[in-house]
Design a protein around this nucleic acid. Sequence first.
DNA 1: CTTGATGGTGCAATCGATTGCGGGCTCGTC
DNA 2: GACGAGCCCGCAATCGATTGCACCATCAAG
Lengths: 339, 339
Amino acid sequence: MTSKTGASVSMADIARLAGVSESTVSRALNNNPAINVDTRERIHQIAHKLNYRMNMGARNLRLRRTHTVAVVINTEIQTGQSFTDPFMMDMVSMIADELNRSGYSLLFASTSLNRKDWHTHLIASRRADGIIIIGAGKYDLPIKNLYASGDPLVVWGSTRDKAPYCVVGSDNVQGGRLATEYLLKQGRTRIAFLGDTRHPEVRDRHQGYTDALTEAGLAPVNEKLLLKSFRYDSAQERLETTLRQIESLPFDGLVAASDMVAMGSIKALQNCGYRVPDDVSVVGYDDIPMANVFTPALTTVRQDIERGAKLLVKKILTQIKEQKANSTTLPVRLVRRES
Amino acid sequence: MTSKTGASVSMADIARLAGVSESTVSRALNNNPAINVDTRERIHQIAHKLNYRMNMGARNLRLRRTHTVAVVINTEIQTGQSFTDPFMMDMVSMIADELNRSGYSLLFASTSLNRKDWHTHLIASRRADGIIIIGAGKYDLPIKNLYASGDPLVVWGSTRDKAPYCVVGSDNVQGGRLATEYLLKQGRTRIAFLGDTRHPEVRDRHQGYTDALTEAGLAPVNEKLLLKSFRYDSAQERLETTLRQIESLPFDGLVAASDMVAMGSIKALQNCGYRVPDDVSVVGYDDIPMANVFTPALTTVRQDIERGAKLLVKKILTQIKEQKANSTTLPVRLVRRES
DNA sequence: CTTGATGGTGCAATCGATTGCGGGCTCGTC
DNA sequence: GACGAGCCCGCAATCGATTGCACCATCAAG
């Protein structure tokens, strides 16, 4: 309700006041040239005077669209509770800005893609014209199914699988390579990787890591020990207990799957009496805002979130216009700091 | 479209197949007892077979509601670009969960409350039944205006102003006091406050800070110097330049307005050769996930985000049901760590 | 047999917009 | 004065649901 009276003003009200039909009001407000300029002006003024706002639900029903895009955060890859990685939030926020710029709204949903009904209430119920999924996670079957339904869909994730649907993502292989090569250049020879490789993006980063190592004639370190499910919130704890079981440090360089994992690892190393970067040099991933505030300031691989968000939106809108959009891989770059 | 054919199934389709009227279908699907059990079952089966999803837009139009709540992040208080404080994201995510649990959708918007049209496209356009605003910011006039329109509205912010509208927030005065008293107990006597007191919540924390100091017979330190606009992303830089202009450290304890500010400050102190907590003990605010990962692990004041989110949702739904909801202040607690 | 419940369904209006088609009006032209 | 051409505008259907009211059938009671 726009006023305490509870009665919201509709086109009918304007039509009555202007002494014209609703058709004319509709056309006038949409600046249809078929309407006389004087009439149009008069209607616009009345509308303004009444503080009229069009009922978008009604309009969208008639036009068979929603002018809304759903953004789905896959919580399955997170703790299951909430997703606390600031990277996600930045992304969502920028997507929201981009969508608004195009006159679209953003319907926010955080759910596990594993749930049977995870998307039925979005597109099928006509709440959104398209879906942007952030973080495909381990299983992409549900996404394939959604794609098969023909609905507009864009995914932020690994672009390496040549998925049939449209994917936007960073060049994670290159990122993993950059991180590893940086460590190699620092003279590190025993470089380990920390992260949950069941996630496609992490798997790609790991690929870049092994590529770089192989080219340098080196081998990965302690894969069995370190390649488990390393979520950022458990990274510290797990690494710490692992370190305490070991006599001496098996690595002098660490490629972390995310900044959060990197920070947790550094914390664990420090707790066990090791110094960063003296004993171990660590490279993170994402370049979240606090990477620069952390001590030591995190050397990390930066993803261009802003460009990613713009692309995601552009591609989803393209598909909503019934056109085809193809996948894009974004370049990454290394940010050298102190770790 | 739920199928590649492009034709989505409506109640009319079901009615035709079942040999009944649309009214009956509608009532059957809503489990209206007026419908014969056999008929209802048959209709349900047909609906299931056709993979029918109700068009929520149409339903909401008829029922004059949206079953959607808009969550507005006030970006004015942030950098203007995006809001990177993970605290916000946690809040939004939990609100989304809560809303979904009640069958509501979450329309996400990040905008500056200063913009003239900041909410017209939300309620007035009937895109949402109510608005949750996170971070009222410096100006609450636009919120008062919105409130005056009679629309359901809940704000996360300072509960100390006795605002006419419904506010949910932490006990920031108590939080500021807890932080300060902790430092006093550590034997610190020259305690400074860092944060932008133009924000109501920060102002309240500062109030608790001065209260505690006064009771201890002490005075604030370097107010003029430190009470400027300390955003987390500039905290480090500003404090660092300030420190370099000063001979000796004017404080041995620091109450920061947020964890992000605390981390930035610690970074600045370390860069200038001071040790935390040896030279300066620092207390943060929020207890964001990485507070525990930071080095040193941040002593901080924890806000109960989960309960906050639940309350925000509960109160907005209450108002949507045309009932009155009043403000609530949530308790906070100190989390002792290493800083 | 008439009347009155009672249970199960359908008719049609409604929510607030959009739009194809048709029609009135004004002019210009022959 | 008649006629065709534009220019404006209204009628009514439509999008996909909900719901008050009327209606019919069945059956028991009087």
